[in-house]
Design a binder for these strands. Structure first.
Lengths: 199, 199, 199, 199
DNA sequence: CATGAATGAGCTTTCATTCAT
DNA sequence: CATGAATGAAAGCTCATTCAT
């Protein structure tokens, strides 16, 4: 009789979140309306609020989900033999997975973080966790002699993540830029940055 | 009777634009309201529409003004002798000039570009112009033997601009990151990237 | 299979009504929501509608129950020897029994009666029944020589009930007023009003 | 040119308040919607918020206005020679001035005071001010020998105001009650309460 | 008997924009 | 040139009620 199925609830929540992501990607975090999300998720406004207590909660949950997804990429990279190649490949793979519009979402999140502390915290927490894992990985490279030991692993990780993120942004700003050429130069940049000084 | 002074008109326009920028930096492109801008610019809503035909026009004009300002920095750099040092110094100076809040504005603009073609065009045009000038500058360095001649000047410019932009984003994501440390590592990154291969 | 026990049904109904009363006292007739009542009564919204066909029905039933309860007090008074003392004691006891919050409920009911004929009828019917019994009691006092025979029993009952109700309202308006002092002066007022003229 | 006319603004505010009062009297403090008030005041919802910052502010302003109006009656009474007669006449006059529906508003205000501190404060402040003036008037009567000096002027004032208010409520609960008869008995009640003990 | 998912109309409030002065 | 009163569409959200299970 009692059909309290938390699995179904959780699944519906995820569906709503994905619908919301499509809307946010299309019209922006502020531009997408609750009723637009409801239409996309095929749900009534009243019912939406059984899953999320506010629009901000939807934005926060979607931001977290997006960030968590990014973590997955790092896992793959950590298992690789060719760190730099995998890092650059990550950019390509990310680009392929979602539509172009979805990339603007990251900027929307950064902008939102400027006047929304809860979003700022999500970005900060994720950024720190990711960087910490990345730095650990760099340290291993330093001990193995493959990476310049004079670099501060944490700051180097931050700068590299920045460069990767920045190139993504550049692609969006100027779609005509050669995808292959950018990747190639980014690989050079990372390689020269990390390579130990020649004796 | 009415002496319409185009100079005065243009000056008032600029004042409004600066007021708008403060509001947009504080509350976001969507978050800042027309009446908020009117209060900041000490102008009535009715009168505001004598200078700009819509909120979108204000956003567009402000975006252009912001981009044009960035060009000025590059001009200064072009006159310098120490390319890498000046480039990094530019980042610092930009950071010093505006409040941290102003940095969010760039991401707001990027986000807006995702669903607003006219903003997208402004960013794209500016990005191309800036990169083109930057690339020219790199080419001069290559001819002077100070910059690795094997790099494609245009793509190298794109990657470097990306890295600089990315570091700005990183500082928003995680404000606790050492500003000096990031600058230092960014300098190393750029230096190693551009330095010609040692013979 | 399903043994429908009308007694159990009736009992559950009363429980719901009491839960509703607590909610209404706390948040007002309009302010309390069905889901709030459901939570308080530990029942699902769907099931609630097996007991009451609408929120208005709950309000009506609760109003009737509250009025019926008030009648009980009068019964006790009718059996007493000291009419005035018992009357004032009644006010005190009522005040003691329920929380202060519950008193607001009466005004919510009166307000509701203004735009809800069915509630208006419940209050009117109860008011008349109560006054009629009270008047009968006063008449007995007049015949026994304890109450001024020149008073019209019905109107005197109305005026006294009004005064008692009014004092309740006054305590809401100004909670700092001395409860004991008000009770004392109300006793004097009633005493002097009812006492037969001295010969 | 500059047409900042605070008089017109204030007048419009009063008009809106009166329109709101009609709506509140008809449908209750919670039942009346902003759009209903807008229709009654012939104003757009957007413009309404230039005069009042929220619905609660409208309710508060209207409550204050209603209370202030009540003060006027006391002034008239204070100038009279026949205190009791004037007091009873006050009830009559109040009744005649507004529609029956308007009387329910007082109950709505009392109910609202139960879960709305700002309304509670307005009622409390007004109640205290009114009682204080009434008590001063009673004290004068005590010194003049017309009023029983053993009564506490403040509490007597409270009880009398309560009785008057209560009779108003009773009239609403049961409209069939004789208006004249109630007034007569209320006069007797007040008279006997205040009259000094016969020597 | 009992659940809680689902609805959709309606609520208060905001805001870009227009217009009479 | 300049004001601010005025608009009305649309936003986020609530809630009484229904229905499939």
């Amino acid at each position: 009789m009692r059909t309290i199925d938390p699995r179904k609830h959780e699944e519906r929540r995820r569906e709503i979140l994905q619908a919301a992501r499509r809307c946010f990607a299309r019209d922006g975090l502020r531009g997408a309306s609750i009723s637009e999300i409801c239409a996309e998720a095929k749900i009534s406004p009243g019912h939406l609020y059984h899953y999320f207590e506010s629009k901000e909660a939807i934005v926060a949950a979607m931001t977290e989900a997006t960030m968590a997804e990014a973590d997955t990429h790092l896992d793959l990279m950590a298992q690789s033999d060719d760190p730099i190649g995998t890092l650059v490949a990550k950019i390509e793979s990310t680009r392929a997975k979602h539509s172009d519009a979805a990339h603007f979402l990251v900027f929307d999140m950064l902008a939102e973080a400027g006047h929304n502390p809860s979003i700022a915290k999500i970005l900060r927490d994720h950024s720190q966790a990711l960087r910490s894992r990345f730095a650990g990985y760099l340290r291993a490279g330093q001990q193995g002699g493959k990476i310049d030991p004079s670099l501060d692993a944490d700051l180097a990780a931050a700068v590299l993540m920045s460069a990767v993120e920045g190139v993504k942004a550049m692609r969006i700003r100027d779609p005509k830029l050669s995808k292959a050429g950018l990747g190639e130069h980014l690989t050079i940049l990372i390689g020269r940055f990390l390579t130990p000084a020649q004796k």
